[in-house]
Amino acid sequence: MIDAKQVLHVARLSRLELEPGEVEQMATELSSILGHIEQISKLDLDGVEPTMHVVPIDGGLRDDEPEPSLPIEVALSQAPKANAEGFIVPSPQA
């Protein structure tokens, strides 16, 4: 179903780090779940439209009117690492 190599690829896409022992376990668990899920591929769904929202929603667009922004100290208040200007992250180039 899903092997260790695919698990590692998906983990990388998800920015999840898996310990060596977790990879095999994840492969087993996901395979078991996917095995069950697979039954939907047997249904005849030709010509069936996909549904995103079941309830009809005619969501209106927002007017281009400014609303107050957060004070910078509030915007930065929850950051694990910040200076007075912004959110500090390891450089992507590093």
């Binding site: 899920i37 939907i40 249904l43 769904l45 069936v48 439209e49 996909p50 549904t51 079941v54």
Partner: peptide, 12 residues
């Protein structure tokens, strides 16, 4: 195979 199909199942 997964997301597209699941959305069709939702329709059903």
């Amino acid at each position: 195979a997964y997301y597209g199909t699941a959305q069709r199942v939702r329709t059903k």
